[in-house]
């Protein structure tokens, strides 16, 4: 059996405003090393909510999230931040690049925070990641001088900088046209196949999910097939 990297154990979540709604209802699943998993479901079924919980940013839920054999419920804010920094790479629908920094610096930031490598090493690694994404020629541009597709690729490079256990994406191609979506998908595919990168991606895109190893389908806060 392969090593389990992420485990969702009986996750239930309520929203209380404006009235009590059970958005997630007893979610159970695991992600193994090297898996390329997509999550699909109708709008409003709770995919993003689930991802925020799995990514440790949302801490108000019932049940357990286990990442790398550690229970996230037992960790404090600072330790959770460290888990996000070292073990999780994020790609959102929006790129969230910091416009004051260059492309290279944006990619380097989580690496510098990790504080495992020296600044020159982090810089070298960031360049490597940009090369993988074929945007190394943009390294010194300011983040706000790029196209949407390029920005999203920088965001992926940033997610990769600390060699995370798992990359999580919330509709990473949601804002992109067909061509750019394909580029991003190909990148994920390549990471999965060549680097055995574990990926967990929420998507609306049929062709995207169809090409992943495994698809989790959600409906009204529940998993209907996985």
């Amino acid at each position: 059996m392969k090593e389990i990297i992420l485990e969702a154990n009986q996750i239930t979540k309520y929203f209380y405003d404006p009235m009590t709604v059970k958005v997630l209802n007893d979610i159970n699943f695991t992600v193994e090393r090297g898996d390329f998993v997509s999550i699909v479901g109708k709008s409003g079924c709770g995919k993003s909510t689930l991802l925020y919980i799995l990514s440790t940013m949302d801490t108000e839920y019932e049940g357990k999230v286990i990442i790398d054999n550690e229970n996230m419920k037992e960790k404090k804010e600072k330790q959770l931040a460290q888990v996000r920094n070292e073990k999780i790479g994020f790609v959102f629908q929006f790129h969230y690049l910091i416009s004051e920094f260059s492309v290279l610096e944006n990619v380097m930031l989580p690496g510098l925070k990790f504080n495992k490598f020296s600044k020159t090493e982090v810089e070298y690694r960031a360049m490597q990641k940009l090369k993988i994404l074929e945007i190394d020629q943009l390294a010194l541009k300011k983040a706000n001088q790029l196209s949407g597709g390029e920005k999203q690729r920088v965001a992926i490079a940033r997610a990769l900088i600390n060699d995370p256990l798992i990359i999580m994406g919330d509709e990473p191609t949601g804002n992109l046209d067909k061509k750019n979506s394909n580029i991003v998908f190909d990148i994920f595919k390549k990471l999965s196949e060549e680097e055995s990168q574990t990926l967990l991606i929420v998507t609306h895109d049929q062709s995207f999910s169809a090409n992943t190893n495994r698809t989790i389908v959600m409906e009204d806060g529940k998993i209907v097939s996985s």
Binding site: A81, F90, I98, K113
Partner: peptide, 16 residues
């Protein structure tokens, strides 16, 4: 706001 959000999402703590 956005930059603060992404800093936190990528591992900067509230204290940072």
């Amino acid at each position: 706001m956005d930059s603060i959000a992404i800093l936190k999402a990528t591992g900067f703590s509230g204290k940072d």
